[in-house]
């Protein structure tokens, strides 16, 4: 077995994990756990649930490392697992309230230049268009488009009925299409 250490790439680590290496899993964990915790914390206010979701995520990584095809970033692959484990956690214990809603809306104008640089590179003027959506529509877009969840999963994450997510998504899509046309 190859020695896995800090210098190994994520792909190599994942291959070693698929081969049963707990050491490789730990290196991968140390590398990715922090940003996953931070990102999950934006979607779940309860740190205990976040910790549990991180555990579930890396247990899933352990079990399904062999299924990583080598296509796309390992980070994105791990995130997809994490967000789905969060949805699972919410299925067991529905969230009190979804914490995503607007922080200090007055800052929007200050930051919009940065937003445009970032999201503009990959998604046209998506940032501007997103910024102009109402917060409840924006949350739905983030859960479905950016976190890649299905309507049903997004509904669980946001604590909404699936029908509501569907209609909000339709409204958001219409608004975005108009904006980005």
């Amino acid at each position: 077995m190859l020695d896995m250490d800090e210098s190994s790439t994520d792909g190599e680590l994942l291959a070693a994990v698929a081969d049963g290496s707990a050491v490789a899993l730990e290196v991968l964990y140390r590398r990715h756990a922090s940003w996953l915790v931070v990102r999950l914390a934006r979607r779940c206010a309860d740190p205990a649930v976040v910790d549990e979701v991180i555990q579930d995520t890396f247990v899933s990584v352990w079990k399904s490392a062999g299924r990583y095809t080598g296509q796309g970033d390992v980070a994105a692959w791990v995130w997809a697992i994490a967000i789905h484990r969060l949805v699972d956690a919410f299925r067991r214990r529905p969230p009190a309230a979804y914490p995503l809603d607007e922080f200090a809306p007055q800052l929007t104008t200050l930051e919009s230049a940065e937003d445009r640089v970032l999201l503009g590179i990959e998604h046209g003027d998506l940032a501007g268009a997103l910024g102009r959506l109402s917060p409840e529509l924006r949350t739905v877009v983030q859960a479905t488009v950016l976190d890649g969840l299905t309507t049903r999963e997004a509904a669980r994450l946001l604590g909404l009925p699936a029908g509501t997510v569907k209609t909000r998504m339709m409204r958001a899509r219409r608004a975005l299409r108009k904006e980005l046309a």
């Binding site: 607007e102 922080f103 983030q142």
Partner: peptide
């Protein structure tokens, strides 16, 4: 402490 749009970016 960032807006959700910036967070998305």
């Amino acid at each position: 402490r960032v807006t959700s749009v910036l967070a998305t970016s």
